[in-house]
Design a binder for these strands. Structure first.
Length: 280
DNA sequence: TTGATTGTTACCGG
DNA sequence: TCCGGTAACAATCA
């Protein structure tokens, strides 16, 4: 679940639940202990998302930092809380709500300074109003790395995961193997704007929806794991031109593209690419 | 049981 | 130094 949209959605949902004194911060399975007790009875001032990171900021400056990794998830409920289910790393209890965080990759207490340092290393977050796309462009235009890798590099720009990169590159007709320095400024601007628009839809719908009609919330129903919510992710056929979808790994994750709609800048760079795809 | 995965980091070699 | 490839870690589910 965790691309940027779901983290921002959690920040939005959890702020009113937790923005008061926390009566308990605990670790039901003993999997997260260091510093947790430090937060008991303290006031949570804000729940803040930055890229795929979530920070619970406490009065006095300390913060609880959580990164969900590939599998982590939140379970929020009004009190009284049920028994913890699954591998709960940390449980936050306010007078009104309980928030369980299951199986996160990172779960730690940081000082305010440590939080600032961490955030400084994160690229501009497409979901934050204060994000500066020029920071991302400066990195991209200097790099020979493929754009499909750069947009998922959280230090270049933050919030985009494998599905969004695949879908937005297709929507904007950008071949994922285009070297960053070969990308036109106009293409970057379109990628950025579409990222902002689609991730905001994702926050509102609590789901990755990249097909047209998403704004109205009418998309998303359909067979298959991704139903009609995505265009080419794990699909075999391009919904725009009917051509075949290629799949190949970039940055350790499988991506997809339609060569007809996303013409390669340098055909030589495509050596080794294999046709595939199942679904469809 | 196996394999894949909406993520990230470290390491190695060219 | 940069970049591509690979492995490792992690939890869940088909």
């Amino acid at each position: 679940m965790p691309e940027g949209h779901s983290i921002h959605r959690q920040a939005r949902d959890q702020t009113p639940m937790l923005r008061r004194k926390l009566v308990a911060v605990s670790s039901p399975q003993g999997r997260f202990i260091d510093g947790a007790a430090l937060l008991d009875g303290r006031r949570c001032m804000a729940v803040e998302a930055c890229g795929k990171h979530l920070f619970y900021r406490f009065a006095g400056g300390d913060a609880l930092h959580i990164h969900l990794g590939l599998y982590g998830k939140f379970l929020c409920a009004p009190r009284p809380a049920a028994e913890p289910r699954g591998l709960v790393r940390v449980r936050l209890e306010s007078p009104t709500h309980t928030v369980d965080c299951n199986g996160p990759n990172q779960c730690e207490v940081l000082t305010g300074e440590e939080v600032d340092r961490l955030i400084a290393r994160i690229g501009p977050d497409v979901l934050r109003d204060d994000a500066d796309p020029e920071r991302a462009w400066a990195r991209i235009t200097k790099s020979r790395a493929p754009i499909g890798q750069l947009v998922m590099d959280q230090s270049v720009m933050a919030g985009i995961g494998n599905i969004y990169r695949t879908e937005i590159l297709w929507r904007q007709r950008i071949h994922p193997l285009t070297p960053g320095r070969a990308l036109e400024r106009d293409a970057f601007d379109r990628f950025w704007a579409d990222s902002v628009a689609l991730l905001k839809v994702g926050v509102n719908l609590r789901a990755i929806v990249t097909v047209d009609g998403a704004i109205e919330g009418t998309a998303g129903r359909g067979p298959g794991r991704y139903g009609a919510r995505t265009n080419i992710f794990k699909k075999a056929t391009c919904p725009r031109c009917g051509g075949p979808i290629l799949q190949f790994p970039i940055a350790a994750r499988k991506t997809f593209c339609c060569e007809a709609c996303q013409p390669a800048v340098d055909p030589v760079a495509l050596k080794g690419v294999a046709a595939a795809g199942e679904d469809g």
